[in-house]
Write a protein that binds this DNA or RNA. Structure first.
Lengths: 213, 213
DNA sequence: AAGATGATCTTGACAGCGTTCAGATGAATT
DNA sequence: AATTCATCTGAACGCTGTCAAGATCATCTT
């Protein structure tokens, strides 16, 4: 499940001197630790341990702990994009439902992987320009939201500023709900609304940015 | 500026064996380090160093590094409440302007103290119930937003669920803008809108939760 | 085919971290 | 004046991120 190229690696024994695809193994080990134990439990030495290499080995693939975490975040953005696209395909052609489904998928992704989502946020902040995974490919999460905003009539495709603003506004709304929606103190309210899915839908509805016009 | 009770403490010399008010001094030192160098640069030993005590001294006032950071976060919520109340007083009695001013004040507080705001978020998450500083006093930030939601007609005071939902929705919107609005990649858009204040106002407007009905 | 090159991995080390514990200090109580 | 007890120190533990020097081995050159 973790490796593809060499079929006989259990991360601790019978491993050849050279790993084969250590870079990918490190990223996946880090992702696993973050998802399992949280971001605070992620140490570079621990990642190396889980991958079955020495504490210094990662430095031949990443210049920094930061750079490894950046790679994990980038992987997260790819996953997020895939989840959103899958949800788009699932709901089909109805524009109004599609845009809401995108917002729900975004929020649920954060709910299911809170620590990973947090790391992704850390990665995307303070970048020189929009990070590649946010605008280069049409399949990126950013492009998905952007297109949805135009389709849903929340921005005029003629005005680049308008489109950017609509996309950013929607992203901010989703981010706020994604990060705060999981607070334990909201549990009673979720029950009163008949489940957390309704809770998230209601919040998205009230922010308005994920409704068609 | 850092101490009030003992007038002769410079944190390294001429200090009596017992500090006097080390607890407060530690909180303020930690706050200063976070605001100055960011959350990642905050170490318990560094805080003790800045306060002029041994690395073990803080453990007589906080059981944990976590507990110290919690105290810093609580202080931050008090400051936030004060800022918002000051802004309410400033704009006077117009309801429509008041609720917008609250949102703007919240977002600007986060812009001016991003690391502190992030710490506050960490403090408020995963609490058993709403933390005291968020609901006990009428002067708390939570109570301010809550009252504003009722005044602005965004929730019926008869329905507790409605009020809570409106407050949480507004809080989520503000949180999203507060955390993402400072991204460096939005700088061009801010300029195109004629300043970041307009940028924040526009985003708040689009989320709708800080507009009167 | 043999040797050289360079990427990959290990060993060992360094400073700094959070935390604990035994002991020093001194303010407050008796 | 003696005792008590909260406060602070000094030293230590295992952990961390990071680096430099050397071992290993795949690949390229001749």
């Amino acid at each position: 499940m973790t490796d593809t190229l060499p079929p006989d690696i259990d991360a601790t024994e019978n491993r050849p001197y050279h790993h084969g695809d250590l870079r990918r193994a490190l990223i996946e080990a880090a992702r696993a630790i973050i998802v399992r134990d949280g971001a605070q439990a992620l140490s570079l030495r621990g990642v190396a341990r889980e991958a079955g290499v020495s504490p210094a080995a990662p430095y031949h693939h990443f210049k920094d702990k930061q750079e490894l975490m950046l790679a994990v975040g980038k992987l997260g953005f790819e996953e997020l994009g895939e989840v959103m696209e899958a949800e788009i395909r699932r709901v089909g052609g109805a524009v109004a439902e599609r845009i809401t489904a995108i917002g729900v998928a975004y929020v649920l992704f954060a709910r299911d992987n809170p620590a990973l989502y947090r790391l992704m946020y850390d990665c995307s902040r303070n970048m020189e320009a929009l990070p590649p995974e946010m605008h280069e490919k049409d399949h990126s999460a950013y492009a998905i939201v952007r297109n949805a905003m135009i389709e849903a009539g929340r921005a005029s495709p003629d005005s680049e500023i308008d489109v950017e603003l609509a996309t950013i506004a929607a992203w901010c709304s989703a981010h706020g709900i994604a990060e705060m929606g999981g607070f334990a103190q909201f549990a009673p309210l979720k029950e009163a609304l008949g489940g957390e899915l309704n809770f998230y839908r209601e919040l998205l509805k009230r922010t308005g940015n994920f409704q068609a016009r």
